[in-house]
Amino acid sequence: DETGKFLVLALYDYQEKSPREVTAKKGDILTLLNSTNKDWWKVEVNGRQGFVPAAYVKFL
């Protein structure tokens, strides 16, 4: 159920650099879980949760 969740689009490829991050490919649609940090947003992609740089994604 996606009610109340926001989707964001990956603008660039991002390769995770730590276990707390997730890899995303340009064009991926990610479920935004938390955007309270202006630099790192928590997302879910391909069943995995983790952080990506906020500058790499935008709201749909």
Score class of each variant (00 low, 15 high):
Val45Met: 06
Gly50Phe: 07
Leu32Met: 03
Lys5Ser: 10
Leu33Asp: 00
Ala10His: 02
Val57Ile: 09
Gly47Pro: 01
Trp41Arg: 00
Val43Trp: 02
Glu44Lys: 04
Val52Phe: 15
Gly4Cys: 15
Glu16Phe: 06
Ala54Asp: 01
Lys58Ala: 14
Val52Asn: 02
Asn34Glu: 13
Trp41Lys: 00
Leu32Gly: 01
Asn34Leu: 10
Gly47Met: 04
Gln15Tyr: 15
Gln49Cys: 11
Gly47Ile: 06
Lys25Trp: 08
Leu9Tyr: 12
Trp41Leu: 06
Thr36Gly: 09
Asp39Leu: 14
Thr23Ser: 15
Val52Gly: 02
Asp39Cys: 14
Ala24Ser: 04
Asp39Met: 13
Asn34Tyr: 08
Lys42Ile: 13
Tyr12Arg: 12
Ala10Phe: 12
Tyr12Ala: 10
Val52Pro: 02
Glu16Val: 05
Leu9Ile: 15
Asn34Trp: 09
Asp1Ile: 14
Gly4Asn: 11
Val57Pro: 00
Leu11Asp: 01
Trp40Ile: 01
Tyr12Glu: 08
Ser35Asn: 12
Leu9Glu: 10
Lys26Leu: 07
Leu60Arg: 02
Gln15Thr: 14
Lys42Phe: 15
Val52Met: 11
Lys25Asn: 09
Gln15Asn: 13
Leu7Phe: 15
Tyr14Ala: 02
Leu7Trp: 13
Asn46Cys: 09
Thr3Asn: 12
Tyr14Pro: 03
Val57Cys: 10
Leu7Cys: 14
Gln49Ile: 15
Lys58His: 08
Thr31Arg: 13
Asn37Ala: 07
Gln49Asp: 04
Arg20Phe: 13
Ala55Ile: 11
Leu32Ala: 02
Ala54Val: 07
Pro53Leu: 12
Thr31Gln: 10
Asp39Pro: 02
Asn34Ile: 09
Leu11Thr: 04
Phe51Gln: 01
Glu16Cys: 14
Asn34Val: 09
Arg20Ile: 12
Arg20Asn: 13
Phe51Asp: 02
Glu21Val: 04
Leu11Val: 08
Leu60Glu: 03
Asp28Gly: 04
Val8Ala: 05
Trp40Leu: 02
Leu11Met: 10
Arg48Leu: 07
Pro53Arg: 07
Lys17Ala: 10
Leu33Gly: 01
Asp39Trp: 15
Trp40Arg: 01
Tyr14Gly: 02
Val52Ile: 15
Gln15Pro: 06
Asn46Arg: 11
Gly50Met: 05
Leu30Trp: 04
Val8Gly: 04
Thr23Val: 03
Lys26Phe: 06
Arg20Asp: 11
Thr3Ile: 12
Ala24Gln: 08
Gly4Gln: 13
Lys17Gln: 13
Val57Lys: 00
Thr23Tyr: 05
Lys25Ala: 07
Asn37Glu: 08
Phe6Cys: 15
Asp13Val: 08
Asn34His: 06
Ala10Pro: 01
Gly4Phe: 13
Val57Ala: 00
Gly47Asn: 05
Asp13Phe: 10
Lys5Trp: 12
Asn37Ser: 09
Lys58Trp: 10
Leu33Val: 09
Asp13Ile: 11
Glu2Tyr: 14
Glu44Ala: 07
Tyr56Trp: 08
Phe6Thr: 13
Val8Pro: 00
Tyr56Met: 15
Thr36Ser: 13
Val8Asn: 01
Val43Tyr: 02
Asn46His: 09
Asp1Asn: 14
Ser35Phe: 12
Ala54Ile: 06
Tyr12Ser: 06
Asn46Ser: 07
Gly4Thr: 12
Ala54Leu: 05
Thr3Arg: 13
Ala54Gly: 02
Lys17Glu: 06
Phe6Ile: 15
Ala55Gln: 10
Asp39Gln: 11
Val43Lys: 00
Val52Glu: 01
Lys25Val: 08
Phe51Lys: 01
Phe59Leu: 15
Arg48His: 06
Pro53Val: 11
Ala55Arg: 14
Leu9Pro: 00
Asn37Val: 05
Gly47Arg: 02
Ser18Gly: 13
Val45Asp: 00
Gly47Ser: 04
Lys17Asp: 04
Trp41Gly: 00
Gln15Cys: 14
Tyr12Gly: 03
Val52Leu: 13
Ala54Tyr: 05
Pro53Tyr: 10
Gln15Leu: 13
Phe6Met: 13
Leu60Pro: 02
Val22Gln: 04
Asp28Cys: 11
Leu33Tyr: 02
Phe51Glu: 02
Asp13Cys: 12
Glu44Asp: 07
Gly50Cys: 08
Leu9His: 02
Asp13Thr: 07
Ser18Leu: 07
Val22Tyr: 03
Val45Thr: 08
Asn37Met: 07
Leu30Cys: 08
Val43Asp: 00
Trp41Thr: 01
Lys42Glu: 14
Gly47Val: 04
Asn37Gly: 09
Lys58Val: 14
Thr23Ile: 04
Asn37Leu: 08
Gly47Lys: 03
Val22Lys: 02
Asn34Gln: 08
Lys5Leu: 12
Val8Asp: 00
Ala24Lys: 03
Lys17Asn: 09
Ser18Lys: 06
Glu21Pro: 04
Glu44Pro: 01
Asp28Thr: 07
Val8Ser: 00
Arg20Cys: 15
Val52Trp: 05
Leu60Cys: 12
Tyr12Thr: 05
Trp41Tyr: 09
Asn37Trp: 07
Pro19Trp: 14
Leu33Phe: 03
Asp13Lys: 05
Asp1Pro: 14
Gly47Glu: 03
Thr3Asp: 11
Arg20Val: 10
Gly4His: 13
Pro53Ser: 06
Leu60Asp: 01
Gln49His: 07
Leu30Met: 15
Gly50Ile: 07
Thr36Ile: 09
Tyr56Arg: 02
Lys26Val: 08
Lys5His: 12
Lys5Asn: 10
Leu9Gln: 09
Phe59Pro: 11
Val8Met: 07
Leu32Thr: 00
Thr3Tyr: 13
Val52Thr: 01
Lys25Gln: 08
Lys26Ile: 08
Ala54Lys: 06
Tyr56Asp: 00
Leu33Cys: 11
Thr3Gly: 13
Leu11Trp: 07
Asn37Lys: 04
Thr3Ser: 12
Trp41His: 01
Val57Arg: 00
Leu9Phe: 10
Val43Leu: 03
Asn37Tyr: 07
Lys42Trp: 15
Val8Leu: 15
Lys17Val: 07
Gln49Gly: 03
Glu2Lys: 14
Ser35His: 10
Val43Met: 01
Asp39Thr: 13
Val8Ile: 08
Asn46Ile: 04
Leu11Gln: 03
Leu33Ile: 14
Asn34Ser: 12
Val22Ala: 02
Val8Thr: 02
Lys26Arg: 10
Ser18Thr: 11
Val22Leu: 11
Thr36Ala: 12
Tyr12Val: 09
Leu11Ser: 02
Tyr56Ser: 11
Val57His: 00
Trp40Phe: 05
Asp1Trp: 14
Pro19Asn: 10
Gln49Phe: 07
Ile29Met: 05
Asp28Lys: 04
Lys17Cys: 12
Thr36Asn: 12
Leu7Arg: 11
Thr3Pro: 13
Leu30Thr: 01
Leu9Arg: 07
Val57Ser: 00
Tyr14Lys: 01
Ser35Val: 09
Ala24Arg: 03
Ser18Phe: 06
Tyr14Phe: 07
Ala10Thr: 09
Asp1Tyr: 14
Leu60Trp: 11
Gly50Arg: 01
Trp40Pro: 00
Lys58Met: 14
Phe6Val: 15
Thr23Ala: 04
Tyr14Met: 03
Val43Ser: 00
Asp13His: 06
Asp13Ser: 08
Asp13Glu: 06
Lys58Tyr: 10
Glu16Ser: 15
Glu16Met: 12
Lys5Phe: 13
Gly50Asp: 00
Leu7Met: 10
Trp41Asn: 00
Pro19Ser: 12
Tyr56Cys: 15
Arg48Tyr: 06
Lys17Thr: 11
Lys38Asp: 09
Lys42Asn: 04
Gly50His: 03
Leu9Ala: 03
Ala10Met: 15
Lys38Tyr: 06
Pro19Thr: 09
Arg48Asn: 05
Arg20Trp: 15
Asp39Ile: 14
Ser35Thr: 12
Val8Lys: 00
Leu32Tyr: 03
Val43Ala: 00
Pro19His: 09
Ala24Cys: 15
Val8Tyr: 06
Arg20Gly: 15
Arg20Thr: 11
Asp28Ala: 08
Leu32Asn: 00
Thr36Trp: 10
Val43Glu: 00
Phe51Arg: 01
Leu30Ser: 01
Thr36Pro: 03
Thr3Lys: 14
Asn46Leu: 09
Tyr14Ser: 02
Glu21Leu: 07
Ser18Met: 06
Leu60Thr: 05
Lys58Thr: 13
Ile29Ser: 02
Phe59Glu: 07
Ala10Gln: 06
Pro53Lys: 07
Lys38Gly: 09
Lys17Gly: 07
Ser35Glu: 05
Ala54Gln: 03
Gly47Phe: 05
Arg48Gln: 07
Gly4Tyr: 13
Val22Trp: 03
Tyr12Phe: 13
Asn37Phe: 07
Leu9Asp: 00
Ser35Gln: 10
Ser18Glu: 07
Phe59Ser: 09
Val45Gly: 03
Gly50Pro: 00
Pro53Trp: 13
Tyr56Asn: 05
Trp41Gln: 01
Gln15His: 13
Gly27Leu: 04
